[in-house]
Write a protein that binds this DNA or RNA. Sequence first.
DNA 1: CTGAAAGCGCTTACAG
DNA 2: CTGAAAGCGCTTACAG
Lengths: 340, 340
Amino acid sequence: MAKPAITIKDVAREAKVSVATVSRALNGHENVAEPVRQQVLEVARRLRYTPHAAARSLSSRSTQTIGLVLPDLHGEFFSELMRGIDGVARTHRWHLLVSSYHGDQEQQGVALQAMRGRVDGLLVMSPYAADPGFLKDNLPPALPTVLINTPLVDGQYPAFGIDDHAGAMAMTRHLLETGRRRIAFIAGPEANHDARERLRGFEEAMAGSAAAAQGIVLSGGFDEASGYAAGQALLREARLPDAVFAANDMMALGCLYAFNQASVRVPQQVALAGFDDIPLARFVHPSLTTMQVSIADLGGRATSHLLHMIDRDDASGGVGGAILVPSLIVRDSTSRRETS
Amino acid sequence: MAKPAITIKDVAREAKVSVATVSRALNGHENVAEPVRQQVLEVARRLRYTPHAAARSLSSRSTQTIGLVLPDLHGEFFSELMRGIDGVARTHRWHLLVSSYHGDQEQQGVALQAMRGRVDGLLVMSPYAADPGFLKDNLPPALPTVLINTPLVDGQYPAFGIDDHAGAMAMTRHLLETGRRRIAFIAGPEANHDARERLRGFEEAMAGSAAAAQGIVLSGGFDEASGYAAGQALLREARLPDAVFAANDMMALGCLYAFNQASVRVPQQVALAGFDDIPLARFVHPSLTTMQVSIADLGGRATSHLLHMIDRDDASGGVGGAILVPSLIVRDSTSRRETS
DNA sequence: CTGAAAGCGCTTACAG
DNA sequence: CTGAAAGCGCTTACAG
């Protein structure tokens, strides 16, 4: 590829020292005479020398890069996650190698294996993985690994995630407490772990309700279009529910627009709630009640944890991790009927 | 890091052949006897051998990875861009090393230099860069590079971008043609190249209009909040404009919600248009007229081009690249007054 | 078709 | 404080 690339040898020759000294000077080791160091730095700058990363990795056994193995790169969730990860990685001057596998388990295995020799640690998100041995089989041995939003693999790896179940329960209770009885839930994709947990939280809260609450579950796919379709389906029913709880904000927005089109008033005729607190949630009309989950924070914390593991050369992990609890953000879309 | 990692030597010993043969067998070279190849593959699988990427890179002078140097990773734009890039990279089994510099030029230089030895080619987006020598100074020599949405550096590198200027002119003309005369433009960040070009297109179309058109320019920051603020500012005026053209959809949505809150009807009282065609644009009420720009396509095409350059070991580039022209998507938010 | 050997560009004990 | 040398784990001419 590179034809006339400048190597450490060129710098050594030009500075009239050995390559070992150049290496030491450039890496800030103590045992280099100050004038020599200055000389080396000056030559390196003049020659526009940049160390060859692969060579350095091979001999130092470290890459200064973190691998990300994600199901996808697209959408608000991953955008936020990347922001959080990138933030702490940049602060510590680490690089990011990303890899997506689009839900294909075999592809994921390939992606995991391909990380060997490219990264010093791994952040993996695997909401579809159920097979417990899968990670063990595909992860390069002794590579520090932290899980994000992944069904727990019996504590073998530190894991960071969102408490979707508790979040969905909290929202459902909020709807019940503000007087709603018939509540429709627009679910997310069945294969998705977050989606399942949110549904489970909804059902549990409904079942535990003293009042004669009635739940209705519609299916959805986490995108606006399916929320819109669910909204239209509800409009076709003889009677609207008291509230609609969408498993994420995008679906809630889709549903809201279906209601808007039909001139159904929110929250007067039906309350509406989402999950995620995407930036738009506060700007729609009426503003959307939702569960706030800091995805960026999730990514950032997982990254910090991973960097610590790498730091103490601790591939086992085991302990550690956290489940972040989302917080209820009440906005106009679930105001009590009385108050509107 | 890795303590008991399995190397090519282990495979060779176990398969009773030389490391050279293992290398050839695993890389699918022709000159290996079939039974030997089978034997090697079998042993490699049994030992869970994965080649060490850094070692391979160092000796083969190739990394199978593309570097991405972007101003940011966050938001709809980058999410879509990544999707397009990731799509074609994955198809060809290439890896992605990402790097963001958050508008800091020095950071960008560091990021560019750090790519040496890590990647075989670079995709760089530098909407803030004005200094023409900057890239030349910081790019590793002889590294194939393709520019995305970057003010052209006198054709030294192939460049892919969006024709923001033509797009903004097309939208402005659409508004004029549907009878609007007083048109407010909500601009994007001044430092942003896309934003500047869109403003320029608006102003040029307004100036070129035969009719007595009147333009008003408000400042914004490409986010919903600034669109909302601009909408409120317009509402405080004695008289609403005939139309509002926001430099991107997020600001248009923010503005729409300001109008909704004030019960100003769109498009009856004021038409509204955006730019980008984000997924939500068709779901808001009324649906939003906008310019469709396929960011994912932009990323995909730039990536394909880069892979071709790498393929023919063509670092010079020079020729090539494309400026994608956005297309006008007319929706309800700019319907003629008569028809509503 | 196969192996021994050189080499990729660094880092790091080991001597001095 | 400095240099010569070994070694990181591969690939690839070069012989045979």
